[in-house]
Write a protein that binds this DNA or RNA. Structure first.
Lengths: 156, 156
DNA sequence: TGATTGTAGTGCAATATCGTACTAAATAGT
DNA sequence: ACTATTTAGTACGATATTGCACTACAATCA
């Protein structure tokens, strides 16, 4: 049975997460070219880390956004020349998203430009604390993911 | 001197924070009336917890959003009848935002409806771990806040 | 093979966020 | 007091996110 203080603490945790998300996103986007947003970087980064040639719908599920949102995100980064859309010979309905050399270069540059900012974390959190923090955040995220799966998908 | 692994870990921490923010926001909004978003609740909650009668500009700074964004947020919750805008007798340029009884009731209902979800955190994180997590998140947030202050404000 | 159902993507409309430019009011400097 | 600067808020436009409806294609089934 949770006490009032338990609830307050849980509320505070998610409140801090929300604020941190906002602050870190703003800090990151300040290092990106003008008009480029965090989701655009995330999309490219995803293609590099997982694999390119995925369909927009698969990516929408990975990012847990509606497919219309992914469609728009892909069109934006395609306009920048960072990905190319090609027909899927295996399935006439779908397209596949391929990285371009410019897309990979953009990712490298972005990572290099935020690395110094990222490194400053160590000014306030010891390595051991960072490990614990990351571990607990992952635990929490997996838990929320599992809860979400128990309910409903976000698109058709 | 940060190693590659240090950077990877820091990157992963902020990545988890971003995902958690998205997941918890979606879970929260699922409990709110249709069309009501987290910022709308946050605005009301802020007025209850800090004080109502603040000016929109002060609130914009508290939320770290541009004043045009706050203007829009206030107009939305005002349309719902949860706040009232009144002229500021001390300053003819500004207005002050006051909670209505309906606004306070909305907050109570929202909190009551998410409390069961919040309580489930304890299923995966012990109280001690939650304390540490909250503490480290606050440390990180204060650090980012300080960095941001060292640079520039977001509006005029 | 033809009809039904399901899936991938897009077009469009509604709302949110946010920058620029503007008006009105307060403040500072002379 | 008069002018210049600063501050509070709004109007407007641009982009992002997202739901709904639609088309094209695929898969299933009779």
């Amino acid at each position: 049975m949770p006490t009032d203080d338990d609830l307050r603490r849980a509320f505070a945790i998610f409140n801090e997460i929300g604020i941190l998300s906002q602050l870190s996103r703003a800090a990151f986007e300040a290092r990106l070219p003008d008009g480029v947003l965090l989701p655009h970087f995330s999309l490219i980064n995803h293609l590099v880390r997982v694999a390119d040639g995925q369909t927009p719908l698969v990516m929408a599920r990975a990012f847990q956004v509606p497919k219309t949102t992914m469609s728009h995100m892909v069109s934006v980064v395609a306009k920048r020349g960072w990905v190319e859309l090609r027909a899927n010979p295996k399935d006439g309905r779908s397209k596949r998203v391929w990285l371009t050399p410019a897309g990979r270069a953009f990712r490298e540059d972005a990572i290099a430009s935020i690395a110094p900012d990222l490194a400053t974390i160590s000014d306030v959190l010891k390595p051991q604390a960072q490990d614990t923090l990351l571990h607990d955040l992952q635990t929490l995220r997996e838990f929320l993911d599992a809860q979400r799966d128990g309910e409903n998908g976000s698109d058709g």
